[in-house]
Design a binder for these strands. Structure first.
Length: 403
RNA sequence: GCGCAGGUGGCGGAGUGGUCAAUCGCAACAGACUGUAAAUCUGUCGCCCUUGUGGCUACGGGGGUUCGAAUCCCUCCCUGCGCA
């Protein structure tokens, strides 16, 4: 089961230092939850993930349901044993995939709404290039607003859940709150999430409001079907609308969840995002853990911690690693650039990770240009270690009254 | 030495008498990616500028035919293959 203890509350901000106790050990918070969608931190072994100082991972219900299927995972004794990870583990509910395979895919938008986003063609859910029917700028909100009753092209959202075709074999799949609970029970993570609908930045007020009713109803169904041995976090939504954010936080916060996730889109700029998180957190029970879903660029981290977030997951350290980026004390470096070929220095001379102790930028650049797979591992390890060390320092800052 | 094939932008490779600065790919360069596809997407990519339905320069070298040539002819140089 789950126990959350707040060790210290900051006097300078809403930041808090805490400890999350699970049957697989203790997590010091605030913490970045390392993303292991398909029961793996891409390119790393579970041993390496530990060495990179990750305390807690999050895998995904949607992905694991499709491949290999929760029955297989359960037959191995659950996710922990399946992936040889004996530390705490979360699973996401699959709700986000409704958005990312649906409207997110249709309109080429993420949950952060970039004004200067590149033009992106409309693509099909499975990621295969499709005939481009039209192009849009992500800031063409006037042309592409999602209003009440509208459906994404590849996903059917009903009041009970979501129908979609499996990106794996095309078969029709239904996922709703009950199904999500059942799958997450079989997967066996310590902390699981309620099944929600993550609304698009392009959703209008009416759509978002209606969606919220659905998410709230689903939250109750999740609680009714809650697995006994796992902690369940509810998820608040509300889009960019303050009254809906508050309404959602009040409602979800009043339910007997073990913790709370903050989901959805977060506006167009960082200030708005922080504001939106603030609206939500203010309404949540103060002594319960709060998880921010899917946010964590390096520059966001101090802000979200100061907002009172305890745990947050983000693909940035690992995903950017596979695109050739290293996060360092000098900033984000695109190590794939030719200028690094002659660079004998480590990725970050201030970093203590084994990559920085043993390998040069030039070598990693060479490997990237040679399209080898090892540099992706080296960068992933470094980035994780870097992020985890960074947050370790922030925890210390809270402890010593600096944050 | 003879025969055959060929020499186009950093590379590969289209184009065979007329909108040809020249499809396309790679490389390069500049970006994007926030509940993760190592997928992908967006620019730039001969030179110049007042950045535009702008100007200038190119198709191994030289010469020729033609109103017009990367495209046809001659010659030279170079590369590959085959034969001596």
């Amino acid at each position: 089961m789950l126990e959350f203890k707040i060790l210290k509350k900051s006097k300078n901000s809403n930041a808090r230092l805490g400890v999350l106790k699970t049957s697989h050990g203790v997590v010091e918070t605030p913490v970045l939850v390392t993303v292991a969608t398909q029961a793996v931190v891409k390119t790393l072994t579970s041993e390496e993930v530990k060495q990179a100082k990750s305390q807690l991972l999050i895998a995904n219900t949607f992905h694991l349901h499709l491949k290999p299927g929760e029955k297989i995972v359960k037959s191995f004794g659950g996710l922990h044993k399946f992936m040889n990870w004996d530390r705490p583990l979360m699973t996401d509910s699959g709700g986000f995939q409704v958005f990312s395979l649906g409207f997110g895919s249709d309109h080429g938008v993420g949950k952060i709404f970039k004004r200067d986003a590149n033009i992106r063609p409309i693509r099909q859910a499975q990621g295969r290039p499709e005939q481009v029917e039209g192009r849009m700028y992500a800031n063409d909100t006037n042309k592409k607003i999602i209003s009440k009753g509208q459906q994404p092209r590849n996903v059917k959202i009903t009041s009970d859940g979501v129908f979609f075709n499996s990106p794996v074999d095309g078969r029709k799949i239904f996922l709703g709150p009950k199904e999500s609970m059942k799958i997450q029970q079989a997967l066996g993570a310590d902390i699981i999430f309620a099944f929600d609908e993550c609304t698009s930045p392009l959703a209008d007020y009416e759509y978002t409001k209606k969606s919220l009713v659905k998410t709230h109803r689903w939250a109750k169904i999740c609680l009714e079907n809650k697995p006994t041995k796992q902690a369940l976090f509810g998820i608040t939504q509300g889009g960019k609308f303050k009254d809906l954010r508050i309404e959602s936080a009040k409602f979800i916060g009043s339910l007997p969840f073990d913790g709370f996730g903050i989901g959805g889109e977060f506006g167009g700029d960082k200030d708005t995002m922080i504001k939106m998180i603030g609206w939500t957190i203010k309404e949540l029970p103060s002594d319960m853990p709060r998880h921010l879903l899917g946010i964590g660029h390096l520059e966001d981290i101090p802000k979200i911690i100061k907002s009172g977030v305890d745990t947050f997951d983000c693909i940035v350290p690992t995903h950017y690693a596979r695109h050739g980026y290293a996060f360092t004390s000098e900033g984000r470096l695109d190590i794939s650039k030719a200028k690094f070929l002659n660079d004998k220095k480590p990725l970050d001379k201030k970093c203590g990770c084994f990559v920085c102790q043993n390998y040069s930028r030039g070598y990693i650049t060479h490997l990237l240009k040679a399209k080898e797979i090892t540099p992706l591992k080296l960068l992933t390890f470094h980035n994780l270690y870097f992020f985890n060390s960074y947050i370790e320092k922030l925890r210390n800052d809270i402890k010593e009254g600096r944050l």
